[in-house]
């Protein structure tokens, strides 16, 4: 099963939940943990893996051979991102705008465009006990997180359980990270901000046809409106974590919850089992595995 942990609002406890789940499961089995919050990857603060492999991620940027170019302007015309412009017998390239689609080089009538890789970040693989950690890290100043997330997700194992830590928000990096998951766990807190961002995240996972459940963190602060919302929307609240200064203190020091307070281990194992049960219900993405993605997508849309 591929389980992603997302939230909408930042700082609600995604990494706390993802690391706790992975550690609790790793007592018995191998687990894969992917840190897809490539702008601010924090999983390894808690997992402390031995990095065994590290490699750069590139996106292909056009390079123009001025000797071949006749400044026809085809490349600028086909570029949807305005990343290439032809002015006064000069071709200007704006690498920050380029998505690396390859249209310009393929369509250049003079074959004057080749591509060269621009490094936008790295992917690291490492181990900690039974956990295999794969994390991406966007280079400071680079704009595009999704290509790094795609690279991290290329490592998804179909032999072990996979847990994905997602970045906050609801835009492209979040969609890229949770796409293809069998279940998405949405972590929130019982405040108006938590509720507002949870409802946005729910819309995203529904758009993607992924079943979801909620974890309420810091229960006891705020109000009861998150539970009310989940009830109305028929979204299961799968775990509630109380506001507890011990939990906050362990978190602040980078100590995983299940190591700091071992009685949480069993609760996370149970949480995972419950999710797995829900994810294998008829019509869910996991039960449709083996079908092509397009068919799975159609089925998800029909069932929603």
């Amino acid at each position: 099963m591929i389980l992603s942990v997302a939230s909408g609002k930042g700082g609600t406890g995604k990494t706390l939940i993802a690391t706790s789940l992975a550690l609790a499961l790793s007592e018995k089995d191998k687990v894969q943990l992917l840190d897809c919050d490539v702008e601010e990857p924090n999983v390894d603060i808690f997992i402390r893996s031995n990095v065994t492999q590290s490699y750069p991620v590139f996106i292909p940027i056009p390079k123009v051979d001025e000797a071949k170019c006749n400044y026809c302007g085809k490349c600028a015309e086909v570029c949807a991102y305005n990343a290439i412009a032809v002015v006064n017998k000069k071709v200007l390239i704006f690498p920050d705008l380029c998505h690396g689609c390859g249209a310009c080089s393929y369509l250049c009538p003079e074959s004057a465009i080749t591509e060269e890789g621009q490094e936008i970040g790295i992917v690291e693989k490492g181990n900690s006990g039974n956990i295999e950690l794969i994390q991406g890290r966007l280079t400071i100043g680079q704009l595009m997180a999704p290509p790094i997330i795609r690279e991290v997700k290329k490592h998804v194992s179909f032999k072990t359980e996979v847990i994905i830590d997602v970045s906050p928000g609801t835009s492209c990096p979040v969609v890229e990270a949770i796409k293809g998951s069998d279940f998405c766990l949405l972590v929130t807190e019982p405040t108006p901000f938590g509720l507002n961002d949870l409802s946005l995240a729910v819309e995203v996972v529904r758009e993607l046809g992924i079943p979801c459940g909620v974890v309420i963190n810091r229960a006891g602060i705020g109000d009861g409106k998150v539970e009310e919302y989940c009830g109305k929307q028929n979204i299961p609240v799968l775990l509630t974590i109380p506001l507890d200064t011990r939990i906050a203190s362990f978190y602040s020091r980078g100590v995983p919850l299940v190591n700091g307070i071992p009685e949480w281990r069993g609760r996370f194992v149970k949480l995972f089992e419950e999710i797995k049960q829900k994810a294998t219900l008829p019509g869910s993405p996991l039960s449709l595995r083996g079908l092509s993605r397009a068919k799975r997508g159609n089925s998800a849309k029909q069932s929603s």
């Binding site: 702008e39 603060i45 400071i140 680079q142 595009m144 970045s167 928000g169 978190y251 602040s252 020091r253």
Partner: peptide, 27 residues
């Protein structure tokens, strides 16, 4: 927004000052 990517760069570039709010956790 949180993070350091596209939306953050778009919020930051050309501003006069950035106020960075942090918390005393390793993250």
């Amino acid at each position: 927004p949180p993070g350091i990517g596209c939306a953050v760069i778009s919020s930051l570039s050309g501003a006069d000052l950035a106020l960075l709010i942090t918390e005393p956790t390793l993250s």
